[in-house]
Write a protein that binds this DNA or RNA. Structure first.
Lengths: 177, 177
DNA sequence: CGACAAACGGAGGTAGCCTCCGTATGGTCG
DNA sequence: CGACCATACGGAGGCTACCTCCGTTTGTCG
């Protein structure tokens, strides 16, 4: 990959992040190219369609989340667990709209995204198991339960950060072993 | 309202339902007008923009759900409660994508939609209170809890009906008084 | 430094959004 | 019953976005 190509790839991802968080998954691709100071043709060479750009962006962000989760290994189990839940909520809030857009798209090769998902799940499982082994979290809880709790929490408290904090503390207390 | 206008209004809503469930909130408005055998101008007179059409459609559906919930008054409390949860899940599944599109839109007069929401909530509360008074449902559960549970359930079990049924039975068992 | 594969840019064809206004028609009143 | 007009309809047209295609530019390697 040529140096200019890599530079432009990164620039496009950064501008796509801005545009998608501002306007949702419907953001104009031409606007993204303009923000990056590049032609629309360049955007389409790197990402053949909207889905490809979204998948690349989400995958990059998921990799970032995975890195953070792995760093939680240095914290005590209960604290690491709480931080994991919190980070997942934050990630879910920011990318809920975008992720739903991606989910509704079909077909195509989503290997990259699937891999990033699997990695994030595995990293989360490690934190969960550790917390459970330390007796900080009920042993019957699974990651699927937490996904459901987190998503429900986010949707039920839309636009009410105070309610969100209250319910999150309730959930965390309820999960303690 | 003239007779032809009312007929066309209904026809547009029906075709919008088809199109939105097929293609999500991004469905083409021109396609909706075509399906209804009407000009695009007619669609825009009845619904000045996409949001207005979505709001009208969701409101109509919510009113239908409210009617169903009210009919549950004839069933025994525990059964009515379970049916309410089930119907809410069904409604949420079908309209999740569309509803999210609506939620992300801002400003404008949403009185009609707000009223429909309030009515559905009130009807649900009646069923909940009755079930709790009969001792069929834990007294500390609120409708907000159920919204969170339901939404989380739907999101966590995307594309896996079997898992959905399993988790739903778990939730219903867990809610019993 | 020169050559060429790799990358860029943007014109252009298509389609959807929404507006505007000329045309058609349902309902009402003499 | 017929004529009038407010109400409603249709679609052309201006705009913007999507995506493709190809002529031009540029990084890299011998």
């Amino acid at each position: 990959m040529r140096a200019d190509a890599r530079r432009n790839y990164e620039r496009l991802l950064a501008c796509a992040h801005e545009a998608f968080t501002e306007h949702g998954a419907d953001a104009s691709l031409e606007d993204i190219a303009r923000r990056a100071g590049l032609g629309i043709g360049t955007l389409y060479r790197h990402f053949p369609n909207r889905e490809a750009l979204l998948v690349a962006l989400l995958s990059a962000r998921l990799r970032g989340l995975t890195t953070y989760i792995d760093e939680l290994a240095g914290q005590e189990p209960a604290e690491a667990f709480a931080n994991w839940v919190r980070a997942s909520c934050e990630h879910g809030k920011t990318y809920r709209g975008i992720a739903i857009g991606v989910m509704s798209m079909v077909l195509g090769d989503r290997t990259e995204f699937d891999d990033a998902c699997a990695a994030a799940k595995a990293a989360g499982d490690r934190v969960l198991v550790r917390a459970q082994e330390a007796g900080a979290v009920r042993p019957d809880i699974t990651r699927a339960h937490l996904v459901a709790l987190v998503q429900g929490l986010i949707l039920a408290t839309e636009d009410d950060p105070e309610l969100f904090d209250t319910l999150l503390s309730v959930v965390l207390a309820g999960l303690s072993g």
